[in-house]
Each structure stands twice: as C-alpha cells, then as structure tokens.
Amino acid sequence: MTYSMFDVVFYGAGAFSVVTTTLAITRTNPVYALLNFVMSILGIALVIFVLGAPFAASLEVIVYAGAVVVLFLFVVMMLNLAHLKTDFGVKRGRSVRLAVPGVLVISIIIEIGIAFSGRFGKETTYHIIGPSAVGRQLLVADIIPIELGSMLLLAALLGAFHLARLSPERGRQ
C-alpha cells in the first residue's frame, strides 16, 4: 500500500488539527485556546481542500479563522478577563467528573462507528466539486433554504443587537 501525496497531506493535517483542538479545549487562558483553535481550523481547511472542496476550504478559513475567532477575541477583550476569575481550581471528585464524560464520549464514538461500519461502500472516486457547482446547487435548487438561512441570520442579528444594548436600569442589577 503506497501513500499518495494526498494521503500524506490528509493524515498530517488531520493529526495536526486533532492535536491543536485538544490543546485548545484544555488551555486555561482563552487567548491561547483561541490561537490553538485557529491552528486547528487551518488544519481542517487543508483536509477539506484535500477532500476536493476548495470553496468550502476557503470559506472555512475566511469565516472560522477570520470572523469567528476574531469575534471571540473581541468578546474576550470586552470581558475584561484581568478582573475576572477564570481559574476555578480543582474540585473534589474530579476523577468522577472526568470519568462520566469519558464513558459518554467513548460510547458515542463506538456507537457512531458501529452505525457507519459496513455501510456506504468503501472506496469513492475523487471529484473536485468547484464553486460553480456549489453555487448552482445553492442558488438554484436550494433558494428557499437560503432565504430561511438569511432569516436565521437576521434573527440572530436582531437578537444580538437587542441583547447587547446595555440598559442601565436592568443591566446594573
């Protein structure tokens, strides 16, 4: 079994994103965690690119690494973390607290693995699905869901706008 360049890139990028994600969720400092998250997203973008979806890969970089993480950083700055206790210390029974999610996660992985194994065939032919194909699908066939998505965004916009307005009489409570 020979490894193609694609395999090398895929496995390398995948391992990189797993490691950085693990680091991201275990940091105590949110800024470090966000930097690790950016790394992981770049890795995932590479994986997506290798899988033949260049448009999605570029969106992943632009939206996640760009918009989402920057938004996170803004909020972290606004939270004024220097005056906020973020390290809650270790409570008793930590091992139990880790054991329960561990068992849960492992059983979910096993369950999904069983669900996927032996289905959907083994091999697949390699297609590059470019932006034009995606755009045609998106804006011709799925125009109604797109509109619904825009409404979702509008609702989020209005909600965020409303919630972010600090009203003194209620906000100071």
Binding site: V100, P101, L104, S107, I108, E111
Partner: peptide, 8 residues
C-alpha cells in the same frame, strides 16, 4: 451530558 445521552 443529558442532551448527549438523549442523542445517543
């Protein structure tokens, strides 16, 4: 956790 259990 309960949500995850339910999804399972």
């Amino acid at each position: 956790g309960m949500l995850a259990l339910g999804s399972m």
